[in-house]
Amino acid sequence: MSQKTALHINSYFLSNKIHYYFYKQLLKKRNDQFLIPVYKHFKQEDIPEVDIDYVFGKVDKAIFVTKILKVVRLFYRKKYRDFDYLHGHTLISDGIPTFILSLLLKKEFVVSVRITDISLFIRRSVVFKYVGRKILSKAKAVFFISPSLKSKIEELYPDLDSSKYHLMPNGLAPYWLEEKKTVRERPAFDQQVKLLFVGKIIPRKNIDILIKFLEKKQKYPYELTVAGENVLEMDFNKINSIFPPGNKIKYLGKLNSIEELRSAYDNNNIFVLLSLSETFGAVYTEALSRGLPIVYTRGEGVDGFFEEGEVGFSCSNSSVEELQEKMEQIILSYRNISTNAYKRSKDFDWDIIVHNYLITINNTIAI
């Protein structure tokens, strides 16, 4: 079967490295084209090998329609040719010009949905909610980075055809798949259970639930290692003074290299992040690649990719009692869960993700 090729419109390309990883892997398999219009202030993030257009300014942030017009005009100015379909990499910012061009060119299109589509547009405006519905209904395929994000769209548009919805998770940076990890043995948990939190210390990351957990005397002593910028300026020495004997927080600060991050994963037993909201959470899959069982927020991020107890557990982000229960379940089956974690991390190889994307496209797009 001949490969169908696309023109990708991605105005968020420089916001996260996952877009670059997708770009590189896809170009190994097809001669796709990319239209990448971004804000001018991103010039410091430039990637020399990628054709990026720095066209958006302050006006475009205030008057959304000018942003759409610039993308359509850029398409015609750059004279893109010889592609079979369009792929808008967000539902609103990229999806609208993608939809307009599909009508003008009489070509089919697919879209990806990001959490910003919902939080910044659909839930704030009846106009964008209507536009989102129109684009979703006309797209030949819709891609989501997580089951939880897919569920949010299904709740917002329960009458739309969900058979064309597909999962396309964020992949791991190649480093995490290249760095081999030996099987973890069950640690001596009666001495101390070493938990790890990685992320900015901001309200959304909800480190408060972990502090409340450590305030209670547990069956096992717990040490929580925290790695990330302390935006809230928490005084961890003061916080440690309120914990029962055996429980404590060790603050590493903001880590400056991927090697430091790997060391943090390798020197702890369980990864726990119970965010109030999470689009995907690359730190979860990074932890899996180092064989760490994970505890993640129910209905957010990676929830839905795994069976309960397979690589860890989903958990309420407000229940200390449930968190205690899930920790003890992981400890009881630690070696098996750790082994599963390492194995399942391979599902987040960009080669596999792009391969599955191409199968979906070839089964969906007609030439």
Rank of each mutant, 00 (worst) to 15 (best):
K248R: 15
Q192T: 14
V113D: 00
R262M: 07
F83G: 11
I9T: 02
Y85C: 11
I115K: 13
Y334Q: 03
I100N: 06
W350K: 07
I209E: 07
P174M: 04
Q324V: 03
K78V: 05
E215A: 09
P169M: 02
P187K: 04
K181N: 12
D94S: 13
K219Q: 11
S345L: 03
K28M: 12
P245I: 13
F348V: 05
E325V: 03
D266R: 04
D117Q: 12
G57Q: 13
K79G: 14
A188F: 13
H8Q: 08
L332F: 13
D208M: 01
F128C: 07
S277C: 01
V283C: 03
L195I: 09
I96P: 06
K254V: 00
Q33Y: 09
E108V: 10
S151D: 15
H355G: 05
T339N: 15
P147S: 01
I239L: 15
I153V: 15
Y39A: 04
N170Q: 06
I211W: 06
S318K: 15
I92S: 01
E325A: 07
E328V: 00
P37N: 10
E310T: 09
I352E: 02
G309Q: 08
I122M: 00
S289N: 03
F75L: 13
F306K: 00
Y76F: 15
L14C: 06
